[in-house]
């Protein structure tokens, strides 16, 4: 089976069977990262460019490691060191990169739809590594892999996503993916941080943390985007932490074998207390490990064209 599109732009348009295919493939790829020689020759001679207009440690490194372990050559471009600082437009940058004949371009950009623009303009496969508050498909896929691994299935699980839902591309991609896989998804956060179209997303909406995480199999905490604090979406960090942080008291409301997830970077003491982030329920670092496998699977499945 193949993916039906040349690009990976989001989970919204991704059929369930293709999600299964990516997760199954990723599961087999995990083993490669445990070898002494962590490299296979599959993408030998292919060139992968990461084009990051926003800060990132995990995602960019994860993509680069994934590409390298498959034998591809990688080039990393970050906006601060590129001609973007000289005023070059996204489209011009992309056209110039295309002229050097890469095979896959991975892009992160603060504007929603940036990856879609490249996808429709270039013949190369484009992978969206985050576009504004829109989608971050590889994060959702690695989250789904982690859940499936820990729980055996996604279908029928009660999954709570807590935090700034409106500004979170991680939440959006996960909502699309998890509901498609048959999970019962609850979202929770301050009313100011709920997207307007939340009612159309097939999730239940809560404004009280305790209600959302009650009996949950999975609690996914979102990063409080501190850079947005100036917009006064909430009065103070302290108040936010009092109402919406996951701590040793409220975690008891969830199931005994609940897993706690976070896409990183973690604001310790804001959305999650350190004892929970480092505690026995936390799978935060396994998410990172799975990220490499999911990205390897995608690079493999998108290479060599589609049919």
């Amino acid at each position: 089976m193949n993916l039906s599109k040349k690009d990976m732009l989001g989970v919204m348009d991704l059929p369930k069977e293709e999600i299964d295919l990516i997760l199954d493939t990723a599961e087999s790829f995990k083993e490669i990262s445990t070898r002494t020689i962590k490299k296979v020759p599959t993408l030998r001679g292919k060139t992968v460019i990461t084009l990051f207009f926003e800060a990132s440690t995990r995602t960019r490194t994860s993509f680069e490691i994934a590409a390298k372990r498959l034998g591809a050559d990688t080039i990393n471009i970050s906006a601060s060191t590129s001609s973007v600082v000289k005023g070059e437009s996204l489209i011009d940058t992309a056209r110039n990169l295309e002229s050097m004949n890469p095979d896959i371009i991975i892009i992160r950009h603060s504007a929603a739809g940036a990856a879609h623009i490249l996808g429709s303009m270039l013949k190369q496969s484009i992978i969206n590594a985050g576009d504004g508050a829109h989608e971050h498909p590889t994060q959702a896929l690695l989250d789904m892999l982690t859940i499936r691994e820990k729980k055996g299935t996604i279908e029928g699980l009660k999954i709570a996503i807590v935090g700034d839902i409106a500004h979170s591309r991680v939440a959006r991609s996960n909502i699309y993916g998890l509901t498609k896989m048959g999970a019962d998804v609850a979202v929770c956060g301050p009313a100011m941080m709920m997207p307007r179209d939340i009612d159309q997303m097939g999730v239940s909406v809560y404004y009280k943390m305790e209600d959302a995480i009650k009996d949950a199999d999975v609690v996914m905490m979102l990063r409080m985007q501190l850079e947005r604090q100036e917009k006064n979406l909430f009065p103070s960090l302290r108040e936010y932490a009092n109402l919406f942080s996951l701590n040793r008291d409220n975690i008891r409301l969830a199931k005994d074998d609940v897993i706690v997830m976070h896409p990183g970077p973690v604001n310790r003491g804001v959305e999650i207390t350190p004892e929970i982030a480092d505690g026995p329920h936390s799978v935060i670092l396994e998410q990172v490990t799975n990220g490499v496998a999911v990205r390897m699977a995608l690079l493999y499945l998108l290479s060599g064209g589609i049919k």
């Binding site: 199954d24 087999s28 296979v40 699977a297 493999y300 060599g304």
Partner: peptide, 21 residues
């Protein structure tokens, strides 16, 4: 699983399924 080492892995029409090694 030898799929990733095949000489036609990217040239066959369909991406072969990868199983566990």
């Amino acid at each position: 699983d030898i799929t990733l080492y095949r000489d036609d892995v990217l040239t066959t029409g369909k991406r072969p399924e990868i199983e566990k090694t």
